[in-house]
Amino acid sequence: MTEDHPAMTFDEVVHQRARLAILSVLAEAGQADFPYLRKLLGMTDGNLGRHLETLAAAGLIVISKGYHGNRPRTWAELTIAGQRALDAELANMRALIARLEQG
């Protein structure tokens, strides 16, 4: 039985540049609001919103809405499943790099 190539074990939802970046930021931040993510990642409102919805639908993040004064705010927070998925993705990435470096 042959071992799967690391590239074959990437999660389709997580293994996307923008979503991987969102998960990485949330893993470090605990939680972040929509404008912070948009500014840091240099994404448009629509693009960021779609990626957040995809991650939330997969149960990797939780989106909550609230107010600060009269200003509506949207917060994203990593779930335990999201943290596990990110850890697995980064481990796969390291395995892929190691494998490619070995030739």
């Binding site: 590239a7 990437f10 293994h15 996307q16 540049r17 923008a18 991987l20 970046a21 990642l41 240099g42 994404m43 693009n47 990626h51 892929l96």
Partner: peptide, 8 residues
């Protein structure tokens, strides 16, 4: 992080 293409 611009772009939304697949990472690899």
């Amino acid at each position: 992080m611009p772009g939304t293409r697949n990472a690899l």
